[in-house]
Write a protein that binds this DNA or RNA. Structure first.
Length: 273
DNA sequence: ATGGCCGCCCTAGGCGGA
């Protein structure tokens, strides 16, 4: 007799840019033990599939997965303690990189995204990485939009979207207006993705827009906690049909201070499904 | 005080991150 329900009353879905899954297996296991997500979506795993550290996650009960990695860069993975059906992935911008993977869990489609960072110069003509970022976002918008063929039904979209859209999603709106991750053209592009399926930004359902909220703090700060110059780059979005079931969305800020941390903290939402 | 640092890769400086 199984003790794991196949149709849970509520689904706990987390996202975390882990910046090398092999280097940080230990703190991922700590997060799983302390926060018990049903589904954990990782970005920047930086590991070929053959080298992904499966054994520890399986021992922790996360025996279901959909992993897509490459050597050195990028890489996304969905780990689950509930049965998971891979929905495939889409090769955004036809680069053959590993920035999206999707799976169906308990009747909900979960999309895990790693949107390109976009380089230093916020100019599509001068900087091909910025052009890639904007093209990637436009393709997301079209895929989820009316003419697109993204899967329908109740869905959760998570990931490192590499944009902090709100004024209070960054430590200083004025000082970051020209910094890639918070420029108006990016914010507009992300809003177009959000509007494509009327996605609900779950974190802001619980934290008012005038209150600061971050999920990333630079490695370069001597004391990230004291400086607190963060940005909210990591997001959990849900389709409107799940909104009434939304119970919480938390950023596990403490994890930014664990041993040998990622520069991102995990974000987890709980949704009744 | 947006750089101060990270992790990756054919081990060492270059690339990418954001």
């Amino acid at each position: 007799m199984s003790i794991v329900p196949t149709s849970p009353a509520s689904l706990r879905v987390a996202t975390w840019n882990i910046n090398s899954v092999r280097l940080r297996e230990g703190i991922v296991l700590r997060f799983l033990a302390e926060h018990a997500p049903d589904v954990l979506c990782l970005q920047e795993t930086k590991s070929p599939d053959a080298a992904f550290p499966h054994a520890g996650f399986e021992a922790a009960g996360y025996v279901h997965r959909h992993v897509r990695g490459e050597k050195g860069y990028n890489g996304v993975a969905i780990l689950s303690r509930l049965p998971l059906e891979p929905v495939d992935h889409r090769d955004f911008c036809a680069k053959g990189d590993c920035r999206h993977v999707a799976a169906r869990v308990g009747g909900v489609t979960v999309h895990n995204f790693y949107v390109p960072a976009g380089g230093d110069v916020a100019d599509r003509e001068a900087n091909p990485k910025f052009a890639h970022k904007l093209d990637f976002l436009a393709e997301m918008r079209d895929w989820f939009g009316p003419g697109g063929d993204a899967p329908g039904g109740p869905s959760i979209l998570v990931g490192d979207l590499n944009i902090a859209p709100g004024e209070h999603d960054v430590w200083s709106h004025r000082q970051l207006l020209k910094v890639v991750s918070h420029t108006p053209v990016e914010v507009e592009a992300l809003e177009a993705v959000r509007a494509s399926r009327d996605w609900v930004d779950t974190a802001r359902e619980f934290v008012p827009p005038e209150e600061k909220a971050y999920s990333w703090w630079s490695y370069r700060s001597k004391d990230w906690r004291a400086a607190d110059k963060g940005r909210r780059l990591d997001h959990v979005w849900i389709t409107p049909d799940l909104r009434a079931g939304l119970r919480s969305c938390e950023t596990v800020r403490d994890a930014r201070g664990w041993g040998k941390p990622s520069d991102h903290a995990p974000v987890m939402a709980v949704v009744a499904v």
